[in-house]
Simulated scan of single mutants.
Amino acid sequence: MTRIPRHGYPASINVETDINVAAGLKAIARTANRMLERIERSELSREEALDMTLTVAEARCEVDPDAEEFETWEAWVTAMQLGSAQFVMATAPEGSTVTCRIKEKEWHLPATGAQPHVNAYSWIQAFYLAMICRENERLTELARVPVSLLRESGATFDEYIYSWVETLQRFWVGQEDVSTHLVAAVDGTGPDSARHVDQEQMSMVLYPPIILFYRYLRGDHAQFNEALTDAIRWHKSYWSGDDDRAMSSEGYVALGPLAIACLARDKGFPIEVDSEYLPKALLNYAWGDEIDTAFHAQKQRKAPVHSSCRS
């Protein structure tokens, strides 16, 4: 087992005097809740909801690095629900209303069509979140989102990202040519191809989930764990690279590698990397079925089997 501890705060920061972590977490959670309350009537809230709720989920893992607390799982589920909902809205018939269940409540949301925030990057975030939460039906829904809709967003990305989207879509629904799109995605991450993203971020954050997925498809457990070790080390190196990054909640969890590791773990791969970047309860699906995530179903929270987390 390879142990990779999470990076800490920059040396210039005195945590005891400069940061009140608990208060900061409560503040962003309140902001996310207020945004959610306006989601039916506010276009801005719909645009920002995924980013805000994902920030809450990642920030929860600062104080709960193994995701053992129910509130942490709830935060990840909420981000997953909003990630899925924005694509349900985007693909719904013009003029219609969709009903989505988010945080134990049904919301009546308008069809939006193509929007700047409904783009390839947010699709990948939504897909990763659904993988982590083991939401097979939502993964199937996301796999059916037309790539043309993502291109209509107006957001500017390197071409590799569309190949990566098509790789994941085709894999999930069992279509052919997965390897063709995967090779195109890998080739598109090189310095001669990428034009719209910093090469450091590309090589340390965006590329690793792609090569990790390749190792998953090959089925070699040892090579998969070698690639996972590299992915987590690169993630740590990037997010500890300067003071601003080290303070960002985005660095607390390796989102893409975690999603692929969840896929592999459920397929029987031994996961031989131990790190707060891969929260154990998320990786092991320890809180599975504690929240009914269906769009319309009602379900009460159940008590965990062991301490604060179901095994």
Rank of each mutant, 00 (worst) to 15 (best):
T2G: 02
R6T: 06
G8C: 14
S12C: 10
E16V: 10
T17W: 07
T17N: 12
A23C: 01
G24M: 05
G24V: 02
L25E: 03
K26N: 06
A29C: 02
R30T: 12
A32W: 02
N33D: 15
E37R: 13
E37N: 15
E40I: 10
R41N: 12
R46P: 09
R46I: 11
E48V: 05
A49C: 00
A49S: 13
T53I: 00
E58G: 03
E58H: 10
C61N: 13
E62G: 00
E62A: 08
D66W: 04
A67S: 11
A67G: 11
T72C: 06
T72Q: 07
W73S: 06
W73H: 09
E74S: 14
W76D: 01
V77E: 05
Q81R: 02
G83T: 00
S84I: 08
P93T: 09
S96H: 15
T97E: 15
V98P: 07
T99H: 13
G113P: 11
Q115T: 10
Q115R: 14
P116W: 10
V118P: 03
V118R: 10
S122G: 02
S122E: 10
Y128W: 14
A130Q: 03
A143T: 05
V145F: 06
P146G: 11
L149M: 11
L150N: 07
S153R: 07
S153P: 13
T156D: 11
E159I: 01
Y160A: 05
L168V: 01
L168Q: 11
F171V: 03
W172K: 02
V173G: 05
G174W: 09
D177E: 15
H181V: 01
H181F: 14
A185N: 06
T189C: 05
G190R: 01
G190P: 04
P191G: 07
A194L: 08
R195T: 15
R195V: 13
H196M: 12
E200S: 13
E200K: 10
Q201T: 07
P208E: 02
P209H: 02
I210H: 08
F213N: 03
Y214Q: 11
L217N: 11
L217Y: 10
Q223S: 10
E226Y: 08
E226P: 00
A227Y: 02
L228W: 07
D230G: 01
A231E: 09
I232L: 14
W234N: 08
W239L: 08
D243M: 12
R245M: 12
S248Y: 03
P257L: 08
P257N: 02
L263M: 15
A264F: 06
R265P: 00
D266M: 07
D266G: 04
F269R: 07
P270M: 02
I271M: 07
Y277V: 08
L278M: 09
P279A: 05
K280I: 06
N284R: 13
Y285T: 07
G288R: 14
D289T: 10
I291C: 07
S311C: 09
